[in-house]
């Protein structure tokens, strides 16, 4: 069985009742998620005026990350695709409001209302989307101008991370990746820091934490206003498609060709030869 949980089952099945409870009672996990959230908050760089903000926690799970937001007096909305994780959050009486939602389906929030978004250890799930319908996209239009999203994730490899970052930049986010503790395999942590709207002083990429105080970061910016990060690179082996012995049949082929025509592709006309079985010639 693959070691990365995203490769085993879709999140709403992986985080079932048992896993949700196991996750939330591990003192090691509680500590790590708390620390990651504190760091994400630091990178969000909210104005230092003591005013509580209105934040979004994407993939909030059982509320371990959200609790850190509440400790700092912020109000938040958390969304998660796993009902079992949200049930544990309810038991823990978290202060944020919870939504059962799929971050890959676009967020059901009005544009420009959120002061900042965080996501802790959740985005990598999008890279293994199971729904055949769409390439998953994280839409962040709900952020106010100049607001940041800090997404801590466990990329499967450098290429995947680069792809996600490039997509964010193309969509008009400024920012890049902050890698904390890059020289330690265990402590190494990736934060995608995105600022929406035109780059400003405050959208300069923050410095990473290193063992020796050295910084390393990747920088880029852009002007447009479009706030979608596409995330792909499916790794889970796809289910084998059931093929019935007879093949798809003429009807299916004709329908498919019609669909392609509607999309503007040039498709050969339907004739008596369409979808006819070919003899095996050698």
């Amino acid at each position: 069985m693959p070691s990365r949980p995203e490769l085993r089952a879709p999140p709403e099945f992986f985080y079932n009742e048992e896993e949700a409870r196991k996750y939330t009672t591990s003192s090691r996990i509680i500590e790590i998620q708390g620390k990651l959230t504190e760091r994400a908050l630091e990178l969000l760089a909210l104005p230092d005026d003591g005013v509580p903000r209105f934040l979004l926690d994407i993939g909030c799970g059982s509320g371990l990350s959200g609790e850190t937001l509440s400790e700092k007096e912020h109000h938040w909305i958390g969304l998660d695709i796993s009902k079992s994780m949200l049930d544990v959050a309810l038991e823990r009486e978290v202060d944020g409001d919870l939504l059962l939602a799929d971050m890959g389906q676009g967020l059901a929030l009005r544009p420009g209302v959120i002061d900042g978004a965080i996501s802790i250890s959740a985005i990598q799930w999008l890279c293994n989307a199971d729904k055949s319908s769409n390439e998953p996209r994280l839409r962040l239009k709900c952020l106010t101008r100049g607001a940041r999203a800090v997404l801590q994730l466990y990329p499967e490899n450098e290429a995947q991370l680069e792809m996600i970052t490039a997509s964010a930049m193309r969509s008009g986010f400024a920012g890049g990746v902050v890698v904390d503790f890059p020289h330690s395999t265990r402590a190494k942590k990736y934060f995608l820091v995105l600022t929406c709207g035109p780059p400003s002083l405050s959208s300069a990429l923050p410095k990473a934490k290193t063992e020796d105080g050295e910084s390393c970061s990747d920088d880029s910016d852009s002007d447009e206003e479009n706030k979608t990060v596409s995330i792909s690179d499916r790794r889970r082996p796809r289910k084998k498609q059931k093929v019935n012995k007879k093949g798809k049949g003429r009807e299916w082929v004709v329908k498919k060709k019609e669909q392609m025509r509607k999309k503007g592709h040039s498709v050969p006309p339907d004739t008596k030869y369409t979808a006819r079985k070919r003899k095996a010639h050698f």
Binding site: I81, L90, D97, L100, A101, Q105, K131, S133
Partner: peptide
């Protein structure tokens, strides 16, 4: 339900 809106969309609504 239990204070949590279910905002999950069906595949044909995405």
């Amino acid at each position: 339900s239990k204070g949590i809106p279910n905002m999950l969309l069906h595949e044909d609504e995405v």
